[in-house]
């Protein structure tokens, strides 16, 4: 069975908002990483991942997200998340992701604080 993740990118002034839809597993994590690294190579230093349409994640997918965060921190940038379900938020906290990335309750707040207005 296939649970393909889709990623839509909305470029903003200093970065981008990435909208995920589907299961963040190893394949989904790599898809996000590919899009994030393309954006970072293009100069983006602030990325917001909106997980509104992602209802399930696994530990392998989250480990890839942590790798993306580490790479972005190394380049002097930052990655944030918004619109997490309670269980995904809890899983991020268990794995320590919340220590390295800010988690916002909604996109409006995140965009304002990260200066990612359209």
């Amino acid at each position: 069975m296939s649970e393909e993740l889709r990623v839509a990118v909305d470029r903003r002034n200093s970065g981008a908002v990435l909208y995920t839809k589907g299961y963040i597993n190893n394949v989904g994590g790599e898809e996000i990483a590919n899009r994030a690294y393309e954006l970072m190579d293009g100069g983006a230093r602030t990325l917001l991942l909106n997980l509104r349409e992602t209802k399930i994640v696994n530990s392998i997918g989250i480990s890839i997200l942590i790798e993306i965060i580490e790479k972005m921190i190394d380049q002097g940038g930052k990655i944030a998340f918004c619109c997490l379900t309670p269980v995904i938020h809890k899983t991020f906290q268990i794995m320590g992701l919340a220590n390295y990335a800010t988690i916002y309750p909604d996109e409006e707040t995140a965009v304002k604080e990260l200066d990612l207005q359209p």
Binding site: S59, I62, S63, I66, K90, T91, I94, M95, G96
Partner: peptide, 15 residues
């Protein structure tokens, strides 16, 4: 907490 893999059992027990 910084290590990235091997969290499955901890996630199971937390949930």
């Amino acid at each position: 907490p910084a290590h990235k893999r091997g969290w499955g059992l901890q996630i199971i027990e937390a949930h």
